[in-house]
Design a protein around this nucleic acid. Structure first.
Length: 492
RNA sequence: CGGGAGGUAGUUCAGCCCGGUAGAAUACCUGGUUUGGGACCAGGGGGUCGCAGGUUCGAAUCCUGUCCUCCCGACCA
């Protein structure tokens, strides 16, 4: 395998692809648009999964699991939702294969095994879950229902990209039912905060919280809240969404409850999800031409230790010392690996672990052992320093913390430098074409204008930020009045 | 679904225009020397040239069809 990856500045897409493949996060599969998540990528996902799952449970949620298949009649019950997803659904029509009489050793779909009702492979689970909630909810005493599921979903997209848009992907989807509108809105906002907290504090990717415009809203939602992240090529990426679904699904699936006053009403709903797409965001937000840069909190490996020796005696001395260090690091729950593989040389290992984004590398040689020191190399800054063996464990702990902070600060600064206020159309296009990033501009609030801007510039309104300040201005396209700025960007 | 590029060893690719013994690098295996930034020497194994037809004495190479992948668009809750 070629060792070099494409440069970030030359071809960002190619660089991203190379990186995902060569860092062994994932691979292409034989199935169109699908992806194989390799053990290293899955270990990363497991760490993300664990952190998120804890946050969900800390906010009162429980996990459950619902079926992969959705009968078509259920799927079509909520019209807006069904219509939104209809053109990207995989559909099961038969339940059996049989030997092909004309072609020995081959199989054909058995025409006699046609399903009476087609099954849609879930692109999202609202339909199947709400048809279930109908049976679970009668009284306000049954509410709220705060359920999350970890699952795979299938969306037959025209064009796919590793992690960012695959035909099948892993995600979590929360589906909650509430007795009041306010409680449901609170839930949707709370979960958006959970996502922002996770993405910023674990993944070290800064995000902007806001509301989607009607055009960009989830099919079937009253309001969609989102977190938007910025990639190093200046394009935006939707990192997570949380929807206030109103009573749309309750009405579509006839989910009513009796309140304290013995009054019958439809329940209020939310749904929220993040997916393996976050891994794509992580890669594109931090990595450089030498490979991945992973934040310590979720890196599968936080520290790698590489020995340098000339003979078995030296190796044994080093290994003995390393084992002491590992024992202490493990006691602090630090994920550490000692790579004493004799088949590859140190230089090879250095490059390999840099490609994989391991935050800290310790190198211990006989020379160091004599001086009671060890070499420490940071992945984020590529700085190398020599540290006393006596305090190494404390130093590692400190450095991991510093790396986590530094990666976030760096990305935050990049984001700050790439939010540009513009006042007119020429500036708008100029920033999108040359500077890239988010563009903060006035918009007249209509779907038509939004659509027109998208057509002319390929930029979409990423969100109406929660912290947008009241300010009089004129729409960059129509000149009509506007009272706050929204964030535009070209996006993935 | 439109435009472009491609499918040959595990991987990256050359060979194709102009038909005639299946190639390189890298990876892998064996032995040895090495080991502080992707080592070196010697030897070795590995391929239905995407698939199906056709032309030809002969096809990786030419023709037709087909499937798949990547890139750029369109689509993307």
């Amino acid at each position: 395998m070629s060792k070099e990856i494409t440069s970030r500045s030359e071809n960002y897409s190619q660089w991203y692809n190379d990186l995902v493949l060569k860092s062994e996060l994932a691979d292409y599969s034989a199935v169109r648009g699908c992806m194989i998540i390799k053990p290293y990528g899955y270990a990363l996902w497991e760490n993300m999964h664990a952190a998120l799952d804890k946050m969900f449970k800390d906010t009162g949620h429980v996990n459950a699991y619902f079926p992969l298949f959705v009968p078509k009649s259920l799927f079509e019950a909520e019209e807006a939702n069904a219509e939104g997803f209809a053109k990207e659904c995989a559909v099961v029509t038969h339940y059996r294969l049989k030997a092909d009489a004309n072609n020995k050793g081959k199989l054909i779909v058995d025409p006699d095994a046609k399903l009476e009702e087609e099954l849609v492979v879930r692109p999202t689970s609202e339909a199947i879950i709400w048809s279930t909630y109908k049976n679970w909810i009668q009284s306000y005493r049954d509410l709220p229902i705060l359920i999350n599921q970890w699952a795979n979903v299938v969306r037959w997209e025209m064009r796919t990209r590793l992690f960012l848009r695959t035909a099948e992907f892993l995600w979590q989807e929360g589906h909650t039912a509430h007795g009041t509108k306010d409680e449901a809105i609170f839930e949707a906002r709370q979960m958006l905060d959970v996502y922002a907290d996770f993405v910023e504090n674990f993944m070290a990717v800064p995000v902007i919280k806001g509301t989607k415009t009607a055009n960009e809203r989830f099919a079937g939602a009253e309001e969609t809240y989102c977190i938007e992240a910025l990639m190093q090529d200046g394009k935006a990426l939707q990192a997570g969404t949380s929807h206030f679904l109103g009573q749309n699904f309750a009405k579509a699936f006839d989910v009513k409850f009796t309140d304290k006053n013995n009054k019958l009403d439809y329940v209020w709903a939310t749904s929220w999800g993040v997916s393996t797409r976050l891994i794509g965001a992580l890669v594109m937000a931090h990595s450089d031409d030498d490979g991945l840069i992973l934040p310590p909190k979720i890196a599968p490996l936080q520290v790698v230790i590489i020995p340098i020796y000339k003979n078995d005696e030296q190796k044994n001395q080093i290994t003995q010392k390393v084992n002491e260090i590992i024992k202490e690091l493990k006691a602090l729950n630090i994920r550490v690996k000692y790579d004493d593989n004799d088949n590859v040389r140190p230089g090879w290992k250095f490059a390999e672990y840099e490609m994989k984004g391991v935050p800290l590398r310790l190198t211990l040689g006989s020379r160091d052992l004599d001086n009671n020191v060890i070499e420490v190399a940071r992945r984020d800054t590529k700085e190398k320093s020599t540290i006393s063996l006596t305090t190494i464990v404390e130093s590692v702990k400190d450095l991991l913390y510093q790396i986590q902070q530094n990666i976030f600060e760096r990305a935050k600064e990049f984001q700050r430098l790439h939010i540009t206020k513009v006042e007119n159309w020429d500036e708008f296009i100029n920033v999108l074409d040359n500077k890239t990033g988010f563009v903060s501009a006035h918009w007249d609030g209509t779907s038509e204008t939004e659509e027109k801007i998208k057509e002319l510039s390929k930029a979409t309104i990423r969100c109406i930020p929660f912290d947008a300040v009241e300010e009089q201005g004129k729409c960059i396209l129509t000149g009509k009045p506007s009272n706050k700025r929204v964030l535009f960007a070209r996006a993935y």
